[in-house]
Design a protein around this nucleic acid. Structure first.
Length: 626
RNA sequence: GGGGUGGUAGUUAAGUUGGUUAUAACGCCGGCCUGUCACGCCGGAGGCCGCGGGUUCGAGUCCCGUCCACCCCGCCA
């Protein structure tokens, strides 16, 4: 080995040799990606992180004594994923060029070969396209990461990191760190807890976000802060959620919402330009992303992260139902009655009725059985069923369980509201507002993917950004029968809503915002409450006593009283950004060592048990769940 | 907490109304081959059918339980 690593240093990576390098003597290090033994000569595809180069072992190679003959003899034993070094001469492939490889014009005729390490037969092929299950890939993650697609996505992460740091540095932001082991504060995501050995019975929490600390940086006068930071949340996992994830975290003083938007738009434009080579100016010439009020997003798309690469808006027909007293449909009658009796508010309805209209050209692609499958889909979302109606030439409804009982007047009114024409398909949901919104939002996406309006996954070459703004400050908790903070309790309400804090909390809007890309929430933030008086009102509306507030957030409340500047910020999900930029289908593909859906690591087998002695030292006893 | 999908050679899958020795492709091992690049040709090995119980003359197949992975709802300020 001394001959190679000590004497012969690497001259090139396996992806960089070209026809112009012909005649050079080079030294390459890497892994055996493929071997083709033709008896008289052996071909090896040598792979490193930059690409693949074909090595040729020809015993007849002249001018180097017996070396090539020995190399050829040793090459016959090479197998997949062995780690080797090779010294050889770059030669043109002549008529045997390989157009599939960037290095396909040349090959390296090997003079000397060193085997640094053998490899057992890998459990799956280290190739671009494999159909191996994710379970196996995660178990042997280091092999999975050796594959070019994952090497590429991790490079995207690297680029995002570099661009982000350069951008914020140039813009006068300071990269400052915040503690990961913090005081547990209730509310929001569950925290991972860390027993404090030196304080029996007490625990640190892993930070679910740097939120409070970055606000303290503002109070301390640092003015503009950013950090690329790990956050931890002990919640159920999803395709786009991991317990340990990375945020691009930002906070700014003396700013309003628009100032934050401009800072982030600048960052996003830079990232797209420098990571993807995409100039977003062609899509957004003003350099600004469009904005949509939360209320509009919920009404038209059923959630606060609409995918606007396509239309298919929802149509809320609750008021139409109410005006027609249910219109003869048994399910609609009790809903209409509750609005008429005043039990339900028109402006904050507990139950709603919504329609998704599929225009004829899309509806015609849906067979009856496929429509039945849609019903299965929505039932999985918590829906009781999926009423539907196809519009006939005269405006009447066919293939519909509602057709028999509905009054012609209501049918006409719904057709008019939904602008339904012959051949269109109407899909209905009614009932609890939150369920209807969830079901309809998912249905809209599902149908769009099913009918090929957008691809099943990936961006499909489209980048649709949107700021969703002006959401309510509180949401009603059905179980606790009380108003709770929709996000965190330090979001600043609109000034003209402060009077509503006590009278009608549900109507209070706030300076909170989400950045949405292709239906994914890329990030969110808010302008913070820096005024202790309004802060006290918000706590009162939430039913939080002064003592309770002190116990939970005392340090922040103190800080706000000692010259806190107006401030606000945002956090972007760095993993999601990497996922969308690289076209990966899952967050797990852009996180080097991800957890499974149950939060385990299949490679290291974390989490694991610990010894009784360790538990004693930590003053921790485990108990069976009741 | 709830709903759904899946688990069979190293890998990915097939396996009929329960019925001889559980198939295939790729990979692996051995042999041949100097222009292959998904090399080719010849030969070979390889199985706790996730795990545990049950029904049956007989279970990969049917039933019950359980574990693991994935997707969704709840949850994620």
């Amino acid at each position: 080995m001394a001959r190679f690593i000590d004497d012969l240093k690497r001259t090139h990576h396996a992806g960089e040799l070209r026809a112009t390098d012909e005649g050079k003597v080079v030294v390459l290090f890497g892994w055996v990606a493929n071997y083709r033994d033709h008896g008289g000569c052996v071909f090896i595809d040598l792979r490193d992180r930059e690409g693949v180069t074909q090595l040729v072992f020809d015993p007849e190679l002249t001018g180097h004594g017996e070396l090539p003959r020995a190399a050829h003899e040793n090459a016959r034993a090479l197998r997949s994923e062995w780690v080797i070094g090779a010294r050889g001469i770059v030669k043109s492939r002549g008529a045997n060029k390989n157009a599939k490889l960037p290095t396909g014009d040349i090959e390296v005729h090997v003079i000397e070969l060193a085997v640094f390490n053998k490899s057992e037969t890998p459990p799956f092929e280290v190739a671009d396209d494999i159909d191996t299950g994710e379970e196996k890939r995660l178990q042997y993650r280091y092999l999975d990461l050796r594959r070019a697609p994952l090497q590429r996505t991790l490079r995207v992460r690297h680029r995002i990191n570099q661009v982000t740091r350069r951008y914020f540095d140039e813009a006068g932001f300071l990269e400052l760190e915040t503690p990961i082991m913090v005081k547990y504060t209730p509310g929001g995501a569950r925290n991972f807890l860390v027993p404090a050995r030196m304080h029996p019975g007490k625990f640190y929490a892993l930070a679910e976000s740097p939120q409070l600390f970055k606000q303290l940086y503002m109070v301390a006068g640092f003015d503009k802060y950013f950090q690329v930071v790990k956050c931890f949340r002990d919640e159920a996992l999803r395709l786009d959620r991991q317990p340990e994830f990375t945020q691009i975290d930002v906070e700014m003083s003396f700013v309003n919402q628009d100032d934050v938007f401009r800072a982030i738009e600048g960052l996003v434009f830079r990232i797209w330009k420098e990571v993807l080579g995409v100039d977003l100016k062609t899509l957004y010439p003003s350099g600004r992303f469009p904005q949509m009020p939360f209320e509009q997003s919920m009404r038209l798309y059923g959630n606060d992260k609409p995918d606007l690469r396509f239309a298919l808006p929802h149509v809320d027909i609750t008021d139409v139902i109410v005006e027609h007293g249910g219109g003869g449909i048994p399910f609609f009658k009790p809903i209409a009655d509750k609005f008429k009796s005043g039990e339900y508010r028109r402006d904050l309805p507990a139950e709603i009725v919504k329609v998704l209209r599929l225009p004829a050209e899309l509806a015609s692609k849906l067979s009856r059985t496929e429509t039945d499958k849609l019903e299965e889909f929505v039932k999985g979302m918590g829906a009781k069923g999926l009423a539907r109606a196809r519009i006939a030439e005269d405006g009447s409804w066919t293939q519909s369980p509602l057709a028999k009982s509905i009054t012609p007047e209501l049918r006409q009114a719904i057709n008019a509201r939904a602008e339904a024409k012959e051949g269109d398909l109407l899909l209905f949901q009614f009932g609890r507002e939150s369920v209807v919104q969830t079901v309809m939002a998912n249905l809209r996406l599902h149908v769009a993917k099913r009918l090929g309006v957008i691809p099943e996954s990936g961006h499909g070459g489209q980048w649709n950004f949107l700021w969703v703004i002006d959401p309510p400050l509180f949401e009603y908790d059905d179980e606790k029968k009380t108003w709770v903070a929709a996000h965190h309790a330090f979001t600043r309400p609109h000034d003209d809503c402060v009077g509503l804090l006590e009278r009608d909390p549900g109507k209070v809007l706030c300076w909170r915002y989400d950045l949405v890309l292709n239906g994914f929430e890329l990030g969110g933030g808010s302008i913070r409450l820096h005024d202790p008086e309004v802060q006290a009102k918000v706590f009162r509306a939430l039913g939080i006593s002064d003592d309770e507030a002190r116990a939970k957030f005392g340090f922040l409340l103190d800080a706000l009283k000692m010259g806190a500047p107006p401030h606000g910020g945002i956090a972007l999900g760095m993993d999601r950004l990497a996922m969308l930029l690289s076209g990966a289908e899952s967050l797990r593909d852009v996180i080097p060592f991800p957890k499974t859906q149950k939060g385990t690591d299949l490679m290291t087998d974390a989490p694991s048990g610990v010894s009784a002695e360790q538990l004693v030292e930590l003053h921790v006893r485990t108990v069976e769940a009741p």
